[in-house]
Each structure stands twice: as structure tokens, then as C-alpha cells.
Design a protein around this nucleic acid. Structure first.
Length: 574
DNA sequence: CGGAGGACGTA
DNA sequence: CGTACGTCCTCCGC
């Protein structure tokens, strides 16, 4: 029996509809969530929603462990590229309706479908558009532009029609994705699972040791200020650590790059800008340089990761929370807010498992060259992936030392121009012509503004992404586009494998009480009761083998994970 | 008040 | 030394 598609759609006023074959339920969320749970438990169901952050939020709040779903917004982002994915846009694309004919909403852009998960809460009180069943799909084939907006107030029949529209849209998308390629439907499944995981990540947060966090902030930013005057005093003291080196210039605003540039010039350090890597060589020229660089580090903690950050984003349950999205608008990597993706490594000791728990952390080793082997179909390069260290056999094949082989491979993938690549790069072209040809083709497509697709079929658009023209003209603009294209097919494909892995881990470790608490591009952090740590680690490894096998459709390319059981994120890998 | 640019953290 | 992202700060124009 094939998997039944069942729509679950939410209205802004707290009602939801469950719609499938011979099934139509409409009612308040607190009655619909248990019905969804029954269906999830009893049947072979794939849930359909316009967007997990919007429609499935109540199911996540209720703790329903959704297994399979189809997220119309994520499927659309695969199909069409970019990030815009309102129901109306996704519907038009799935049915191949002219984009320029999209009707405008009567109240401007009130969609909350683009909101990140953390802010996607029911909202809006105005009562402007009263939907009726006939109005969800217009006579001209487009979706009602008001449907799904925060001010939309459908009656029960209309909400059910909204669910039927989601079902129909999903089916049309599946057909369109099947045309793109055999992997794209599977990619839609894992991208949808990742989007649901994002809502769970937003709900659960990252376990934090608050005392350690407070201590580390205090080391960098000083004690917690008693009041505003105290805060100003601490700030001024921090500034004086730098300004004491330049008597007579105490009024310099260190937060103003122009004034900093002037200050540096006055002591003989003349620089085009005051970036860290520009100033680093001048550390020995004048003591103010080193003091300034240290000040910047402390200032970063004080402003971005200081007490206000701790108070705003770490809950009473000692969990750091931020909004998550399943893909960015370019290559398709996950994004996270509130520092979850760019927490300074110095603060990682503060990320700690809660009592009775540990973290199982794992990262994918050498993910990008391995992905290159898979997506290009280069058999020789695939053979190299069978080694634990991919660069070892590459070095042997090229007759160079490992560091040279590594630089050459990275240079080929990222377009690095300087450095010691040189001769090794030519040998690379000779030894792995299929892989290198794949990268060259992506670069050339970028130059021609020709859209590309990742391995899983995500459209890489070259029109919208690079909006900023480099100052040095058209050639630089073309080259930037080429580099972007070459990088995007690798980075984006790697993101797809990562999400397939994460979705599999989520599904196969739930019975162990495991909870994915962080996804960081190639790294997973799983919070689990300590007695289940070893089993969780084994399943993480198995999940990688299985998802890589499904994703590549073969076992030619090997992917490896470095996994360990730790209490703090800062702990060594083994 | 919002956008632009500088700066910097992560992968 | 390539790509991507999120966040804070200041300046500038409305």
C-alpha cells in the first residue's frame, strides 16, 4: 500500500484542517493535534504542509514525532531556487503558471510563511479577508492571494479547501521534481524532514551551562553591570586599555573605523582599512595595535555574546534558542540565529550536556572533496574516497606530499589563485579529469549566467544572488559569479547529504531519547541520556552509511564521520 | 527608522 | 585563501 498523503494546515486563529482521501477534519488545534498523532501512529502517512514553521508548529509543540512529510515551501525552493516560497508562488511554479500574472494580496505582503521558525507564531487580529471554499483557487488558476496571510479568516470549508490545495500542490511538485531527476523527489523528502527538524531545534534549544557562560563573559567583558552608569564605566575602562597607549587621543571612538584609522596613522601605522588580518603584521610596530585587537575580541563578547545575549536567548531551562531555517537562498545550507552558528570557539566550554546526559558529536570528514567525487562521477577520485584520509592516495597519484595535494584539491574546488597549487593543479587535471571537468563546467555556467542544479536538484540561480557588482568591473563580476557557481554545486550538494544524514539520525535515534540540538553544516551535536551514548554513536555511523548509499545510489564514494562522546562541546575529538 | 558599509564570528 | 551565513556598530539620508 502506497504512503497516504495527508495535509495538515493551520489557520492564524488557532484552527487546523486534516485532509486526505476520504478524510476531512477541521477544528481547533488542541483537538486536531491528537487526531494527527493517531494517524501518525496508525498509518503509513506522509504529511503535507505549506511550510513546517507555519502549519506544523502546533504538532511540534505537542511533541508529535512526525516521521515523513512534504514541505511545499522547501520543495519549491529546490525546484525554483532562491528563498521566496509563499503558497501562491509555489503553487504557480508547480502548475507552471506565468510568474508575472501572480495576483497581489489586498493588504500588501502579509505572508508569514517567510518568517523563521522562531517568530512563526499565530498572529494578527484584523479581520479583512473572509475566505470561502470557492475562493482558494481562482478561476484563472492562481491561488487566492489573501489565502494564508495573517489576516485571512477562512470558514471551516475553506480551511479544508486550503488543505486540499496543499495536497494538490505537493503532487504537482512531485511530478515536476521527478522530471528534474530521480534524486530530486528524495531530496524533497529530506529537505522537508530538515524543515520539520528546524522547528524542533527552535523548540528544544542548545543545552548550556549557565555558570560557565557567565564566567567566560565576565572574563572578557567584566562583571555584570549593576546599572547603566556601571555599564558605561566598564565600557570606558575597556576603551582606556587601548587609548592609554596613545596619550592625547583619549577621545577617539574605537567603534568608529575612520577614527581608528586616524589613530593608527598618528603612530605610523598607515592602512587601507582596520581589519584584523591587515593590522596583524603591525603588532610589533606599536603597542596600540595589539591592544586594539584584544579590545575587539572582548568587545565582540561584550556586545554580541554578552549578558544581554545570555538573558535574551538562554531560557530558564538553560537552553540557547534561536530560529532555524532548512536552507539559505543560495546553495541551500541550513541557517540559525542568535549565535547558534557563529558562537566563538572560546565560548564552547559553555555548551554542556545537562545532568544525566552527554553529547554525541560527529562531523563529516573531508566532506566537500568526497561530495565532488560523488556528484562528478569521477571513478578515480571515488577510489581515493575509500581511504580514511582522501588526500593520501591523491598525493600518491600526483607524486607530491600530502599538504601539496590538499592545497591543490582545495584550490580546484574554491578557485584559490595564490599559494603553492601550481604544478600540482595541472597534475590534478590529468589524474582526475572528470571531477575537474565538472568544476570547470560549473565555473563556465556561472560566467554565462546559466542556472545550475545541485546533485539533489536544487536550482542555483545566478541572477539574484550576486547583486553587488565588484568595484573593479565586469570581468571581476564574471569571475565572482563563476566562483560562486563552482562553490555552490559542491557546498549545496554537501548540504543535501548532511540534511539526509541528520534526518536519518533523528528518525533512528529517537527511541534512545536522543535529541539533535545543533546542526553546523558538517557537524551534528546530539543530546542523549548517558547510558545510550554508545548506541547512539553507532547509529550515527550507520545512518551515514545508509543515507550516503541512498543519496549517491551506489557505494563507490565513501563518507566518513568522526564521532565521539563528550560532556562539553569544547572537548577534544577523541 | 532603514539601508549601507565595516568588522568578525562560524562552516 | 574561495563561498555562505548572522550580528553588532556607526554613518547617512529620509
Amino acid at each position: 500500500m502506497p504512503t497516504a498523503l495527508v495535509a495538515f494546515v493551520a489557520a492564524a486563529d488557532g484552527r487546523a484542517a486534516i485532509v486526505g482521501d476520504d478524510l476531512q477534519l477541521v477544528g481547533p488545534l488542541d483537538r486536531m493535534a491528537p487526531r494527527a498523532a493517531e494517524l501518525e501512529a496508525s498509518g503509513d502517512v506522509r504529511w503535507v504542509w505549506w511550510s513546517a514553521g507555519h502549519d506544523a508548529a502546533a504538532l511540534v509543540r505537542a511533541g508529535l514525532p512526525v516521521g515523513r512529510c512534504w514541505d511545499v515551501a522547501e520543495a519549491h525552493r529546490l525546484l525554483a531556487g532562491g528563498w521566496e516560497a509563499t503558497p501562491q508562488v509555489a503553487w504557480a511554479a508547480a502548475y507552471r503558471l506565468d510568474r508575472s500574472g501572480l495576483p497581489a494580496a489586498t493588504r500588501g505582503d502579509l505572508f508569514d510563511f517567510d518568517a523563521v521558525a522562531s517568530s512563526a507564531a499565530p498572529g494578527g487580529t484584523a479581520h479583512t479577508a473572509v475566505g470561502t471554499a470557492a475562493s482558494v483557487v481562482r478561476a484563472d488558476g492562481y491561488l487566492d492571494p489573501d489565502a494564508g496571510t495573517v489576516d485571512w479568516r477562512p470558514d471551516d470549508e475553506t480551511l479544508a479547501a486550503w488543505g486540499r490545495a496543499a495536497l494538490a500542490c505537493a503532487i504537482a511538485q512531485e511530478a515536476a521534481l521527478a522530471e528534474v531527476g530521480s534524486r530530486s523527489v528524495a531530496a524533497a523528502h529530506s529537505e522537508s524532514a530538515a524543515a520539520f527538524l528546524c522547528v524542533e531545534l527552535t523548540r528544544d534549544g542548545l543545552p548550556v551551562d549557565r555558570a560557565t557562560a557567565e564566567r567566560m563573559i565576565a572574563e572578557a567583558a567584566g562583571p555584570r553591570p549593576e546599572n547603566d552608569a556601571d555599564a558605561r564605566r566598564i565600557r570606558t575602562e575597556r576603551d582606556l586599555q587601548v587609548l592609554a597607549h596613545t596619550p592625547g587621543r583619549e577621545s577617539t571612538d574605537l567603534r568608529n573605523p575612520l577614527q581608528v584609522k586616524e589613530l593608527l596613522a598618528s603612530v605610523g601605522v598607515v592602512v587601507p582599512n582596520t581589519r584584523k588580518w591587515v593590522l596583524e603584521p603591525f603588532r610589533d610596530t606599536h603597542a596600540v595595535v595589539g591592544a586594539l585587537l584584544e579590545w575587539r575580541k572582548a568587545e565582540r563578547i561584550a556586545t554580541t555574546y554578552g549578558y544581554p545575549w545570555l538573558d535574551a536567548h538562554v531560557g530558564a531551562d538553560d537552553r540557547l534558542r534561536g530560529g532555524w531555517t532548512a536552507c539559505d537562498g543560495a546553495a541551500g545550507r541550513m541557517t540559525a540565529q542568535n549565535g547558534l552558528h557563529n558562537l566563538p570557539t572560546a565560548l564552547r566550554p559553555a555548551v554542556a550536556a545537562h545532568p544525566g546526559h552527554v553529547f554525541v558529536r560527529a562531523d563529516l570528514g573531508q566532506i566537500e572533496p568526497r561530495v565532488l567525487a560523488a556528484v562528478s562521477g569521477d571513478e578515480a577520485f571515488a577510489a581515493a574516497t575509500r581511504a580514511d584520509d582522501l588526500y593520501a592516495p591523491v598525493a600518491t597519484a600526483l607524486g607530491v606530499d600530502r599538504p601539496v595535494a590538499k592545497i591543490a584539491v582545495l584550490a580546484a574546488m574554491y578557485g584559490q589563485r595564490s599559494g603553492a597549487a601550481g604544478e600540482a593543479l595541472k597534475d590534478l587535471e590529468r589524474t582526475y579529469p572528470v571531477a575537474m571537468g565538472y568544476l570547470d563546467a560549473a565555473y563556465a555556467a556561472g560566467l554565462r549566467r546559466q542556472p545550475l542544479r545541485t546533485f539533489g536538484g536544487r536550482l542555483i540561480r545566478l541572477d539574484a544572488v550576486l547583486a553587488d557588482v565588484p568595484a573593479d568591473g565586469t570581468a571581476a563580476y564574471d569571475a565572482a559569479r563563476g566562483r560562486f557557481a563552482r562553490n555552490a554545486v559542491i557546498q549545496g550538494s554537501a548540504a543535501e547529504l548532511f540534511k539526509a544524514w541528520a534526518a536519518t539520525v533523528r528518525a533512528t535515534t529517537r527511541d534512545l531519547g536522543a535529541q539533535i540540538v545543533l546542526c553546523l553544516h558538517d557537524e551534528l551535536l546530539v543530546h542523549v541520556p548517558e547510558e545510550n551514548a554508545v548506541e547512539t554513536m553507532a547509529r550515527l555511523e550507520q545512518a551515514l552509511t545508509d543515507s550516503a548509499r541512498r543519496w549517491t545510489g551506489s557505494t563507490q564514494v565513501r563518507f566518513v564521520a568522526d564521532a565521539s562522546v563528550i560532556h562539553r562541546w569544547s572537548e577534544a575529538k577523541d
